[in-house]
């Protein structure tokens, strides 16, 4: 019985990803990051544009996150909720947020320590990036049980390791990593959205209880 209840809970969690909008937004964010690293690798060092981009990285990052969340909620309100219903999810508890923030800080600190102590390890930045993104994706896959997330997790790791072994310049390989993962996510999200819209072509009216 508990297994059945867990299945229902899992299906409810999957609903957030049923329309592919979340993947499209993350894919878009990854493309922007890819573009950022591409500019880092191509612009001459010390140029005003490069300095501006570097200085505005945090703003860019938060801007992309904020814009993605805004667009996802707007599109869901327009496309998803009228078709298959409205759901609002619980925010992560304070404890969960502290654990997530703590883990993120720990990963960044460990990476910094590694790169500062062994400059050769810079070659492995794409692999480490692929591993971290892959782990995040794997956690989501386990939580919601979507096979495509498992595949994206494996792909992230393989792409990161492959780019590290290719020995490209760090920024170039990061640009390729984010652009490639971004394209994969855009395709996956796009296909999921197309399937969803085909499956639920017309909106149904809500009925009061």
């Amino acid at each position: 019985m508990n297994d059945d209840l867990n299945q229902v809970t899992r299906r409810v969690r999957q609903y957030w990803f049923a329309d592919g909008l979340a993947e499209l937004s993350v894919g878009g964010a990854f493309i922007v990051l890819g573009l950022y690293f591409y500019l880092q690798s191509t612009l001459p060092s010390g140029s005003l544009v490069l300095l501006t981009i570097q200085a505005g990285f945090v703003v860019l990052l938060f801007g992309v996150i904020f814009l993605s969340r805004y667009l996802v909620s707007k599109f869901k309100a327009r496309l998803t909720f009228p078709r298959t219903g409205y759901v609002s999810y619980n925010r992560a508890s304070k404890k969960q947020r502290i654990v997530s923030a703590g883990t993120a800080i720990l990963i960044v600190a460990l990476n910094l320590a590694l790169f500062l102590n062994t400059p050769l390890s810079l070659n492995w930045i794409p692999a480490i990036t692929g591993l971290i993104v892959g782990i995040v994706w794997l956690i989501s896959a386990i939580r919601v049980g979507l096979i495509r997330f498992y595949l994206q997790s494996i792909l992230s790791l393989l792409l990161g390791v492959g780019l590290s072994l290719a020995r490209l310049e760090t920024y170039q390989s990061l640009a390729v990593y984010y652009a490639a993962m971004g394209i994969v996510l855009l395709i996956s999200g796009g296909v999921t959205l197309a399937k969803y819209l085909r499956q639920y072509p017309t909106s149904e009216n809500d009925s009061p209880a």
Binding site: L5, V8, G85, Y86, V87, A209
Partner: peptide
């Protein structure tokens, strides 16, 4: 039990979503 389980996993859900997930008729769900 199905309704309660669904609602336990979310903050809130609307009638349409509950109807789709439970497969109940409008009158029954209501």
């Amino acid at each position: 039990l199905m309704i309660i389980t669904i609602l336990s996993a979310v903050k809130s859900a609307d009638f349409l979503f509950l109807q789709r997930e439970t497969g109940l008729t409008k009158g029954n769900l209501s």
